[in-house]
Design a protein around this nucleic acid. Structure first.
Lengths: 197, 197
DNA sequence: CCATTTTCTTATCTTATGTAAACGTTTTCC
DNA sequence: GGAAAACGTTTACATAAGATAAGAAAATGG
């Protein structure tokens, strides 16, 4: 029903954090579900308690906060990334985030509650949970340090020359501007300035 | 050697995350050390691999990044808060952060490596590690959402009316301005504007 | 207790950014 | 294939923030 190769993608992503025996891995299998999202479709809506997390098999997504009608993009998801309103799942509060497909997307997901159940059943899964949370915290910390210590003009080239440049090229610039916390107009000015150098 | 009541403060902070048997708790005891810091003293220096974490028994501290000679404060620590360059410990890289005492401080600390050892020895401690990382991630996420979706003028009153206002009143405003990501001059203008309302 | 340092405010000047609008180009999708 | 929408850039203008300097008030420390 779910393609073996899709399951293999998820498995290898999890094994990057922690080794699992076949028995431990099998505990997750019954919870898996496959999703397809069309471009522009929202997977998780603000205010909603979507309690699933998963992995992006193909396509890319973004998540954003909405405030006073304005969207603030804070993350892009690409293939092989874990995706979900993890904080909403942790706090069991409605998501502040909206997660949207920027292109057609294929996802493999499972309920966060199932993962929590695995924490009780198997220490190895609890370790996975710890390492996942630590990984998330490291990413958030780096992101915040960048936001606070660098200007948009400095952050933009860093974003472009990171390990995602090929994918970012396919993302419309107004999303990137939004991610940088500036307007498309301002990003256009920055690009012009950078070209002149 | 270490006062019982100081140990009790740490114990209760940890028990807020996870219940521990007496035996499990005792595993941490031999690693504990007491520190005193004078006002202005730095506990962790940027570039250094200080691998301890701990709890603030009394006093308050801040941590900041340094870039181009400018400091960017990203956190204040108060009594009963865990303190440390947690990300540096997790990644085992030199700290990007400097942690400084804003007043005379009393700390109770232990090596992060000891905690990691406890992860191996006792599943309950591993659970503590997971919950601590999740707690950290939640805090970082909220902080970042605030940074991105609110202006300094909105963030300042929220900071003041949070659960820390009494302590924040004792912290010089240029640190708070720095935390908000603005100059002291700008904060002064914001304060004036808010008073006029 | 007085000199020094720190803290906070105010004023001026400059610069960067957002808003709004216009325009050409590209992409999307009936 | 062609109309409509989305996208990226540019301009003009208003606004907000940073830099800098100066001064008053408060805290600190010898």
């Amino acid at each position: 029903m779910i393609a073996d190769q899709d399951i293999a993608v998820l498995k290898s992503a999890i094994l990057r954090f922690v080794p699992l025996t076949a028995e431990e891995w099998d505990l997750l299998l019954p919870a898996l579900a496959y999703h397809h999202l069309s471009k522009g479709e929202k997977w998780i809506n603000e205010g909603q308690k979507e309690q699933r997390m998963g992995i992006v098999l193909s396509g890319n997504m973004r998540h954003y906060y909405t405030r006073d009608g304005a969207e603030k993009t804070t993350y892009f998801y690409f293939e092989n990334h874990f995706v979900g309103s993890y904080i909403s799942a942790l706090t069991n509060k409605p998501s502040q985030l909206t997660i949207e497909a920027l292109t057609d997307c294929r996802l493999l997901t499972f309920p966060y509650a199932h993962l929590q159940m695995l924490y009780e059943k198997a220490p190895r899964w609890e370790r996975f949970g710890r390492l996942l949370a630590e990984y998330l915290a490291i990413g958030l910390e780096e992101r915040m340090a960048g936001l606070l210590t660098m200007s948009p003009e400095e952050r933009y080239p860093e974003l472009l020359h990171g390990n995602k440049q090929k994918i970012l090229e396919r993302i419309p610039q107004h999303y990137i501007a939004n991610y940088l916390g500036i307007t498309p107009v301002s990003l256009s000015r920055i690009r012009k300035r950078l070209l002149e150098k």
